[in-house]
Amino acid sequence: MIKSTKTLLACAALSGLYAGALSARSYGATPVEAGSKHTVQLADKDKASCSGKDGCSAKDKDSCKGLHDCKGKNACKGQGGCKSGDNGCRGKNSCKGHGGCSTAQKPADHGKA
């Protein structure tokens, strides 16, 4: 590819970048139309990992709302507040001997209790 074509493409890229920045500003706080042709939403992973689970409800309802605050800072996930196991009682003293909580959801273990 000759140099002028390379530069032409780079100029096109920069003009797109400017156009995108202007467009994003005109949308205000919404940088992109979610669900538009630009992008396809995956699972509501952030919601699913939080709502209705013991780790959130047991501590503070606001810990769910605050989930998004820690995104992008690398140290959010797995610290407990929003990522409890699906079965809150699993492995805890309170369930010992009750049967239903004593094993992981493994098929081999089902029916043991």
Binding site: L8, L9, A12, A13, S15, G20, A21, S23, P31, T39
Partner: peptide
């Protein structure tokens, strides 16, 4: 190609990728 590149960069900028 130029048009495509322009569109891509516009989208990527709006998505905040850059």
């Amino acid at each position: 190609q130029s048009q495509l590149v322009r569109d891509w960069f516009s989208t990527w900028t709006r998505l905040g990728w850059l």
